[in-house]
Design a binder for these strands. Structure first.
Lengths: 210, 210
DNA sequence: TTCATATAAATGAGCGATGGTTCATATATA
DNA sequence: TATATATGAACCATCGCTCATTTATATGAA
C-alpha cells in the first residue's frame, strides 16, 4: 500500500486517477516482465509491451515516461514478490527445532518459482538509470537483512551456536545467493538434483551438517 | 594454442594470414571487453569497438562476422583467464594441510581481479546466439569441474571426510558461486569486509569451521 | 634491380531497418 | 461544454553491416 503510493511519486504520470494508474501499470508490468524475461530488455520493444498490455503505445507513455521506467517497475515487483514469499514463510514458521531449515526451504522454493525473474534482475539491473540501480540493490539488501534478523533470533534462542556479527552477515548473504544459484545454474543442477534434493543438500551445507 | 585454432574455425574471417587474425582479434577483444564491462553489450556500438581497437569498422568486419562474434570472443577470453588462474593455483599448490584453503583463496582472488568481467558474463550471455550460450556454459562448467577433481583428491588422501558424489558436486558449485558472489555483491560486501576477510570467512564457511 | 601485375588488407561513406518517443486528433466521461 | 483518457502515424536518431575503392605487399619476368 504505502509502497505503491511511493512508486507513483517516483515515476510521474499524465493521468490524474491514481487507481487507474495502478491498474494500468500492473497490466504493463505483467506484460513486460514476461517479455523481458524471455527476450531481454533491449530486444523487447515498447510496441510489444503495449500490445501485450492491451494498450496503445500512446497510452503506455501516459503511464510511464520511458522504457526504463517499465524496467524499474518490473524489478520492483519481482523483489516485492520474493520479499513477500520470505516474510510469509517466516510468519507461518512455528519456531522450534527445524524452523530455520523450513525458512531456507521456503526461500529456495520462492527462488525456484521466480527463477526467470530473479535472473532478469541479475541481467538487467545495469540497464537502469543509476538512481534506480541503487533502489534495486536496496531491495536486494532488504531481503538479505531478513535473514540476518532470523539468524540473530535463532542464536538468541540457542538454536544456533553463537556467531560474531561478520559471520552472521556473511551467512545471510550466502543463503540469499545460494537460493539464486538454483536460478542461474538450473540448466545444470536440475539434471543432477530435484529441487527437493537441492534444498536438502544446501540446507545441510549451510547449517554445517557434513 | 589448440584453443585458438579452434576459435578461428568457429568464427570465419576474410583474412588469410592467421597470425594477423590472432593479433587483430586480440586487439578487438581487449577493446571490447572494457567497453562491454562499462556500458553493456547493447549500449556499445561497433564503431566504438573499432575505434578503441584502433581499426576501421570495415576492418572489424573482416575479422568477425557480427557484433555477437565479438561478444563470444570476449566471454571466451574471460573464462580462459579465470581457468588459467585456477589451474595455476592448483599446480603451484604443494598439497598438505591447508592446500584446499589455498586453492579457494587463489580462486576468490581471481574473481576479485576479474570482478567486472565475471559480471559481464552473467549479464550478457543471454545476448549470444544459443549455440554460443551453450559454449559459455560449458566453460563455466569446466571451471567447476576442476573443483570437483580437487575435492575428490582431498577426500582420497583423507584430508577431507568422505562425502557422496552429490555433495561433492554441490560443494564445487558453491565454491564457484561464492567466488562470484564477491563480484556481484561487492558494492555491499566491500563495505563490511576486505577481500582477505571475505576469503577467510568464506573458507571457514565452506570447510564447515563454525 | 626494376617494374608490372596480382593478391591481400584496410577504409569509411552510405544503406536500410529499427525502435523510442511525441503530438495532433479522437473518444469517453463528468 | 470541459476535462480526462486513448490512439497510432510520423519523426528522428541510431546503429549494424556492406561494398566500391584505396593502399600495401608479394611475385616474377625482363
Amino acid at each position: 500500500m504505502k509502497k505503491k503510493l511511493q512508486i507513483t511519486k517516483e515515476i510521474p504520470t499524465q493521468i490524474k486517477n491514481l487507481d487507474l494508474v495502478e491498474k494500468r501499470r500492473s497490466q504493463i508490468v505483467d506484460a513486460a516482465v514476461k517479455l523481458f524475461a524471455k527476450n531481454g530488455f533491449h530486444k523487447t520493444t515498447t510496441r510489444q509491451i503495449a500490445e501485450a498490455a492491451k494498450c496503445s503505445i500512446g497510452s503506455l507513455y501516459e503511464y510511464v515516461e520511458s522504457k526504463e521506467d517499465v524496467l524499474y517497475l518490473v524489478c520492483d515487483s519481482i523483489h516485492a514478490e520474493v520479499e513477500k514469499g520470505v516474510s510469509d514463510a517466516i510468519s507461518r514458521s512455528k519456531g522450534g527445532k527445524n524452523a530455520l531449515s523450513e525458512i531456507i526451504r521456503e526461500y529456495i522454493l520462492v527462488c525456484h518459482k521466480m527463477s526467470d525473474f530473479i535472473l532478469l534482475i541479475y541481467r538487467e539491473t545495469k540497464s537502469l538509470p543509476v538512481k534506480w540501480q541503487k533502489k534495486v540493490l536496496e531491495n536486494e539488501l532488504r531481503i538479505t537483512s531478513i535473514f540476518i534478523e532470523v539468524l540473530k533470533k535463532f542464536i538468541e534462542s540457542g538454536e544456533l551456536p553463537k556467531l560474531d556479527k561478520s559471520t552472521i552477515i556473511l551467512i545471510a548473504h550466502n543463503i540469499s545467493v545460494l537460493g539464486h544459484m538454483w536460478t542461474f545454474r538450473r540448466w545444470f543442477l536440475s539434471h543432477n538434483y530435484t529441487i527437493e534434493e537441492y534444498i536438502n543438500l544446501q540446507t545441510n551445507f549451510i547449517l554445517g551438517i557434513t
